[in-house]
Amino acid sequence: MWQLTDAFTFNEEIRPLPEPRPGEVVVHPTAVGICGTDLHAWRGRLDRLPIVPTHDGIGIVTNVGPRADPALRGARVVIDPVDQCGTCASCRAGHPGVCLVGGYLGMTVDGLLAERVALPAARVVPVPPSVGDDAATVLEPVAIGFRIRAEIAARRITPGTALLIGGGPLGLLIGQLLAHDGWLVTIEEPSAERRARAHNLGLAASAPGEHSGWRATLVVDTSAVEPGTRAALAAAVPGALVILLGRSPADVPAGDILLREIDLLGIRGGAGHYADALAAVANGTLDPASLVDEMHEINDLGDLEKAFSSHDRPIPPLRSVLHLP
């Protein structure tokens, strides 16, 4: 397994291969994606180091424990990165993404850059043959999109104008899903290259500051930076739903939120929505593989550091996939 021990520093560590406990399976990760959380870890900005990064990936089930479905052995599966106990107050209230007992792969517990990973069988979802490995490594943004769809449905919000702050994989895939549901979507993104990607996907896109004032009944901030969060709140009409997807350092203007009756919601992940996400990819509603700019064959530490370093270039890849041995 490979772990980040410090900023820009990987180390290879040999550990015994895990054995599945009752209800668990062991997965051999074959491909993983590099997402924003992994880059925070790479740059030394994660709360926990050392850590084995990555959580968005696909693998093969190599071993099945007692009380797990034996038919899973040999299956291609994606992994829901959130460990959910199912019994704590958060899980019982329908918020498994913030389970009080479990962890989050690659963020609070070791992730998928390992030869084998033991997981509860309930957290692996078989992948249809029509979904390729690269698409399966960009599935978390789609699962989060379905979580957002569920929150919209629970509030009985009628599709209207939606603004997404940030034109990375999260913004582009969630934007496409919202557009499919009838929302008028605009991506706000400083990069001209990423705005062009949005246009190619049929989404409107604008640069920060190009528009001003209240203009959206749904705002999703994927930026995880203070200017993005401020722009999200500034664009929300009174009564709007504003969703934060990144750990922005911005101070939230509580008084303004109160006076405009803004519904402010933080979403940590797409726990429980991976089957929905796979179905949307399998039926052609979304094509996350189209956002993969680079693929890296990983055989040693040098390959790994080269792949992560590619995201430090002036124009980084939108998404990278690591093919593991």
Rank of each mutant, 00 (worst) to 15 (best):
A162N: 10
F10M: 10
V25P: 03
E226M: 11
A154G: 12
P253N: 05
D276A: 15
K306G: 05
R21A: 15
D69F: 02
D181C: 09
G111P: 01
R247T: 12
L119W: 00
S290M: 07
P16A: 06
L172G: 03
E115R: 15
G246K: 04
R15G: 00
L245H: 05
R155C: 07
I298D: 03
A198I: 03
G44M: 04
S212K: 09
G175Y: 09
G160M: 04
R48F: 05
I148H: 09
P128K: 01
R92Y: 02
G94T: 11
V321E: 06
A114I: 04
T54N: 07
R43Y: 00
T30Q: 13
G171A: 04
I144Q: 02
G166T: 00
R313G: 05
F10A: 06
G44I: 05
L245A: 12
R156T: 13
A307T: 06
I267L: 15
H211F: 14
G284V: 05
T161Q: 14
F308M: 09
H311Q: 02
H296P: 01
R197V: 13
R197E: 12
T62P: 01
A192P: 08
A75M: 13
A41E: 08
D181E: 15
H211E: 14
E189K: 06
A289S: 14
S206Q: 15
R73C: 04
D56K: 01
S309H: 12
D47T: 14
L163M: 14
G175K: 12
G57V: 03
L4W: 05
P50K: 05
L291Y: 00
D6P: 01
A282N: 00
H40A: 13
G255N: 12
V131T: 04
L164T: 07
G44V: 01
L105A: 12
A71E: 12
S290C: 10
N283D: 15
A289H: 02
V77F: 07
A196G: 06
P208C: 09
A216V: 08
A153W: 07
P159Q: 11
G160S: 15
I165K: 00
G102C: 02
D293G: 07
G168W: 08
I165E: 13
E151A: 15
L265F: 11
